[in-house]
Write a protein that binds this DNA or RNA. Structure first.
Lengths: 233, 233, 233, 233
DNA sequence: GATGAATGAGAATTCATTCAT
DNA sequence: AATGAATGAATTCTCATTCAT
């Protein structure tokens, strides 16, 4: 997605550029992000950006991809693969995903933006691509969980993937609120208020427990009969 | 949020204006929505908009509020209050919420946009306001569920509200994908492909069942001991 | 092609705008002409241009159309319709066309540009439209000439129209060279060196005579014998 | 016009360069032609162009000159010098000129562009230079025709040269329209739809006849006999 | 209360040319 | 002789908002 020019750049220069671009796109969404601001911050010529990338969209695509790959591989390299069951593994994924978000708020923000820009018609493909890879990742875990017999047999996998995806993604909002952690501030100031593993664990335990058992009273568990009839009038 | 002049308008005129504004803001997000297009569609002067509202933002706030209120009261008037338990009631809320979205796609889209525009710094308060009222609505149901003893005792209500909110909100995406229902097309063409009550019910049953019991194997249900210990190293 | 806004403008203002636009587009071809220069010359905001016209192309179309219509009607109102035969009439057309060009060099230049911009793909339609109307004008004269029996019977009308069109159009070049009349200078300085009716007449007589009788020796006219054999090898 | 470095280039390399430059300048006029595209197509460095030529303009000048010289010598080598009279010779020139255009559309286009770019102030001299050499060529023929007594005595040679030049040059347009031959397509696809000698001859006969005798009624002029039949085989 | 022309900062993008390597 | 990254002025176009009428 970048042109050769970009990869031919001295590493130091390339990284300065990436930093500046991350700053911009993590503080503003695609539309609002400004190429002009990036070059102003870097003190380089506007034309240079277009030596590196075909257009703003390709630059954005690069950053989103970079963020996604970095996050996935960060998670992958952090989880211990010997986790006993599906829930233990998923917990690790969520935990290290959250840790990643807190420690790399610029990446986190970019992924957040890319996830929630459904109206920007001209970057639909980037959002879709990101969602697709997230789904794939989760579906892999779920399929595995089904095989290991950790999950119920009667699940609609598609629905489960959706539910896990949405809650995992939006956990960021919950944490942000609960711990008064501002991702924007974290980007601007370089560092946000640290959140202890214990505190984080507690929240994620709750999430996992929600996934595992829901919120209904346990006695209700004996589901018989044709399920909740006529919700509609 | 509107000025007095707006309410002094002949009803017919006011409604025409609202229609046009809904059209615009349901097809485009806040940034992309264009005041110019609205007045062009209406054939009125641009200045008029500023006679009615202080600025674009106030107009947006008005529409979001209108959409939220209309949706809440539509749901409220549709559910039968004698619903047996929490899940039955919540199911009705979700069901009629979805029905509302399908039948009033412009309102649905505006709420969707308002929910997912976290980067537009200058409308943060509108998004927050909307989220707040949605949370309040759901918290009311949950509190009630707790009182009625339909829910576990050990729940973190704040977390539960968050989880219900996120999944309920994003159900739209799942339904949209599953039934190939394009909200944008629905706005443009006036009507989307209808989805049967049965099909909708099936999906929502799954959601409710997920809420109630999660996805873990039932035998695991006997949770004793110290629960999932330290995911993080 | 202009928007309503443009016609609602106070005449004086509108005319100032047209003047400035004519200046720009008569001194530069479509690509090279600059909207920025126009507004700079006028001291108005850049946005104003786009209140008047959808885009640069529409502005150009307006100017070309204006130039063509002005020229045609100037010619039409100048020729005496009782001209005896085709050649006398055509001569008047050419004469008044040339007079128009000299006295309205900006219009002349714009028409010149529009005629010879065959590579600018995005304004092909404007050029084509202009050519079409010129052809129609000339074809009308030729058809009339045929009816009046002023022209040979065996003519290929399409070819004749083409030949008359090309020579008439490009007469400008000949005159410009012969009389050292620089159209660009005429635009810039407001006025070019005047050319007497007599001098102009002399040239146009030659053109008309060329149309009427060609350049071949009269005796040759009795062409018998083998005529021009094998041009191609 | 090229620098020495250009001629020091291995022939093969030089020719590849010329080919690519011809492609670009035959598809776009001077302004629109892009040095960047040329080097991209060749896979060479942008700086190389400036090792070979001082600037874009000199490159253009080279190509125009090359095209003109190639065309003139192609025509010269094709015409049989023993042609009986002026018209027969001129016909051959036009015929082989047209054949050249059809078979070398890139050259044709470049000459066309160079002929009709009167507004690009900074390449005026190139256009002028081309026009000058074309005029010289035609004037040679006309002078000869006068000497051979094929033409009227009272001609204004300057005017005649102009008229012959303009119609000869613009014949391309007439042929292009009449035979639906797109020069751009011919460049892009390598070959255009072929036009038979017979068809071409017919048009050129008409042109020559127009030159010889004009379009006026014969009564002034004792022509009998069966018009110019089949000049070319 | 309505009008709608004017504003002007801001956006993305292009491209011939240079020059240090 | 070749490279190719850097330049930066220039381009068209957008749009919420204002304000005199």
């Amino acid at each position: 997605m970048p042109k050769d020019t970009f990869f031919n750049l001295p590493i130091e220069k390339r990284e300065r550029f990436i930093e500046a671009a991350l700053d911009e796109f993590s503080l503003h969404d695609y539309r609002t992000a400004s190429v002009s601001r990036i070059v102003a911050a870097l003190g380089i010529a506007k034309g240079s950006v277009y030596q590196y990338f075909d257009d703003k969209k390709e630059l954005y695509r690069y950053l989103v991809t970079l963020a996604a790959e970095t996050k996935f591989s960060s998670i992958d390299s952090s989880i211990s693969t010997d986790a006993s069951d599906f829930f233990a593994r998923f917990k690790q994924v969520v935990f290290h995903g959250a840790r990643f978000d807190f420690s790399r708020p610029r990446f986190a923000n970019i992924l957040y933006h890319a996830t929630y820009e459904p109206s920007e018609t001209d970057i639909l493909d980037i959002s879709a691509q990101l969602k697709e890879s997230s789904y794939r990742y989760i579906r892999g875990l779920v399929d595995d969980g089904v095989k290991r017999d950790d999950l119920r047999k009667d699940l609609d996998v598609e629905f489960v993937v959706f539910a896990l995806y949405q809650l995992t993604i939006s956990l960021r909002d919950f944490l942000s609120t609960k711990f008064a952690f501002s991702f924007k501030d974290a980007v601007r100031k370089g560092k946000g208020s640290p959140i202890s593993d214990a505190a984080l664990n507690e929240v994620i335990d709750r999430l996992i427990e929600f996934f595992r058992s829901g919120i209904g009273k346990e006695r209700n568990r004996t589901r018989r009969g044709p399920a909740p009839e006529k919700a509609a009038s």
